[in-house]
Computed example of a mutant assay.
Amino acid sequence: MSGVIDGGVIDVHAHWLPPELFDLPPGAPYGPMRDRDGELYLGEIPLSIETRAMSDVRAIHDDMRAGGVGVRVLSAPPFAFPVAGPATGYVTAYNEALGALVADAGGTLAGLGMVSFDDPAETSAQLESLAAAPGIAGAAIPPLVAGASLDRGALLHVLTEAERLGLAVLVHPMQLPRPEWGDHYLANLIGNPVETATAVAALLLGGVKERLPRLRICFVHGGGCAPGLLGRWEHGWRTRADVRRSSARPPRETFRELYFDTVTHDAGQLRLLAAHAGADAVVCGSDYPFDMAQQDPVGFATGAGLDAEALTGNARTFLHGDGS
């Protein structure tokens, strides 16, 4: 990647959606996105961000300069994932718009595109198109589709095809509602980390990385709860035949072959993640433009003891495989 701003780091976790796609794909659980006096709403839920922050390239670049980010990798916000049925037109429109945005950004922006999940052949075709698009490094996906996680069904198909095509995969939770998480923003504060940890566990204990050794996959929000649960998973794998039925390698070992971003909001948690995953598996993330974003992504990561140059090298390897 060329054209970095002020030599800053690569931010692999940021969101972008053009206004013409604010209606979201069919069956989106929260309703369409809307602008209300310059503020962005998801259905009736205020997102606590300016509408322009989601779509405006100047706003994105201004935030990058303020945060020491040289290259920002954009993907759709998770509520735009087409998980409820056919959405070929929406996916095509998003990927074409993202490709055009990246192509016009002078190397300061890159992309992770979108796929649909209802037709495996269509999913493969979409991934092949992403692989051929300049500046698009891979795809962003949810951790759950039709009740299945990364070790089966549509999501396993995506991972299999991504490995075949040399594409990077970013896994982002969807903030799925549950009755006990109705208050206090718990669907985000607890739900997102739990969704991500579930997907990590499915990948590790399902033996997915053993079947797809060249797969480059990153989990946002520092892997959610996964770093704190890894010891429990390891104990279960060693003591229960049903836990290790699908995986030949202990979860601690395979954990070090995954990537995780730095959006943990706690320096101790980030250091725990780096200890479990290895310093070469951690990449910088911001979660721009949401209110749960890491406002100073580079300063937060370096303040926790991580090296900015190493973070960028890790991101290049995640995105491209060869570190280019």
Rank of each mutant, 00 (worst) to 15 (best):
M174W: 08
I5Y: 15
D23K: 11
L186N: 14
A304Y: 11
G106H: 13
G7H: 15
Y41S: 11
V9I: 14
A267V: 03
L272C: 10
P26C: 04
P19A: 05
Q295I: 15
M292T: 13
R72V: 10
D11Y: 14
C284W: 01
P78C: 10
L17C: 08
V169A: 05
W233S: 02
R238D: 04
F260E: 00
T312W: 02
S247R: 11
R271E: 06
G147I: 10
G223Y: 00
V263Y: 01
S2N: 12
F22A: 08
T264H: 07
Q294C: 15
Y288R: 13
A53M: 12
D63V: 10
M1C: 15
V57L: 03
L258A: 00
Q126V: 00
V169M: 09
G3Y: 13
A293L: 04
R271G: 00
G38C: 04
V145E: 03
A66I: 11
V171S: 01
G206Y: 14
P86V: 06
A100V: 01
G67S: 09
V83R: 15
A202E: 07
L42P: 03
F117L: 03
P120C: 12
D62K: 09
G85F: 12
G3T: 10
D104P: 09
G285I: 09
T196D: 00
A197L: 04
R316S: 06
I136D: 01
I60Y: 00
R232T: 06
F300E: 07
I141G: 10
Q269W: 12
L144A: 02
P177S: 02
M174H: 05
T254H: 05
P82C: 04
S75W: 06
A293M: 08
H221Y: 05
G67A: 08
P82W: 11
P134A: 07
I190E: 15
V208T: 10
G138S: 08
V4A: 13
T196S: 00
L229A: 02
I5A: 13
P213G: 06
G321F: 02
V115D: 09
R34Q: 14
L176E: 02
G111C: 10
G223M: 00
R65P: 00
P25H: 14
Y94G: 09
R72T: 13
G89M: 12
V102G: 14
L204M: 05
L159G: 06
F260G: 00
R216I: 08
R164M: 02
L229P: 01
R245W: 15
G111R: 02
G31N: 14
D119H: 10
G85Y: 14
E44P: 11
G303D: 01
R316Y: 11
L159R: 04
A137P: 04
A100K: 05
A267P: 03
A241S: 11
R238M: 04
M33F: 13
A315E: 08
Q269P: 01
W233Y: 11
A140M: 09
P297H: 00
S48M: 07
P297Y: 00
A197I: 04
I5Q: 15
P32V: 04
L186C: 10
A248Y: 08
W237V: 02
G111K: 03
G166S: 12
L176V: 03
A187Y: 15
D322P: 05
S129L: 01
P179M: 07
